[in-house]
């Protein structure tokens, strides 16, 4: 009788552990993927979009009162991605995430080389010729940064200060002049 109870108690505990792990490992990533799919459907891939209110991209804008957000879903399966950034002279931060929400790379206004630069994303070690070709392609700037993502898909988020009207205007102008596209295009 006791061993039967122990068996069912152990079975219940193991079921609880399995359910717990399954939930943590699979449910949030699936919920997040649904959000990414919505952004993809609305904006496409390898394209920078301002996260305006009411858009799918706005769902990742957690602090819209103090920051303007621009997002670019990327897929590096057909080549490296190039972000030609023109950034304002105030706080901004660019972060590259994988599709599970982990940060791959981060850069802010104090770390960036200049107000205008190109950021290249490669999913793996590129051959040196590919870097030279990308840097020489149309639209590149002299200030190039190369990032190895280790993943083919992910999302780039640019957050720029928007705590007052002046900051908002500067950020909006800069982000409208920032692009995200395949380096080969």
């Amino acid at each position: 009788m006791t061993s039967t109870r122990s068996f069912w108690a152990l079975f219940t505990v193991l079921t609880a552990i399995a359910a717990h792990l399954c939930y943590i490992l699979f449910v949030p990533p699936q919920q997040f993927q649904t959000k990414l799919d919505a952004i993809h459907t609305e904006n496409g891939i390898n394209k920078l979009t301002l996260a305006a209110p009411g858009t799918a991209a706005a769902s990742i804008a957690e602090y819209p009162g103090e920051l303007i957000y621009a997002v670019c879903l990327f897929d590096l399966s057909t080549g490296p991605l190039r972000i030609n950034a023109r950034v304002p002279e105030q706080y901004w931060a660019l972060e590259v995430y994988n599709t599970r929400g982990g940060t791959i790379y981060t850069l802010n206004d104090k770390q960036a080389p200049r107000r205008q630069f190109s950021l290249y994303l490669y999913d793996d070690d590129p051959d040196p010729e590919a870097i030279v070709n990308a840097a020489n392609s149309v639209g590149s700037s002299i200030n190039s940064i190369t990032v190895l993502t280790g993943t083919q898909t992910g999302i780039v988020v640019i957050r720029s200060a928007a705590a007052n009207q002046l900051e908002t205007a500067r950020s909006a102008e800069a982000l409208q002049n920032t692009s995200c596209s395949l380096a080969t295009s």
């Binding site: 949030p28 997040f32 957690e62 931060a93 972060e95 599970r100 929400g101 981060t106 802010n108």
Partner: peptide, 18 residues
Amino acid sequence: YTQAKFIANGQLPEHFSE
């Protein structure tokens, strides 16, 4: 767990260095 906390709400957490 930290990852789940944020992405379940569709949020991308800013890196703690930012």
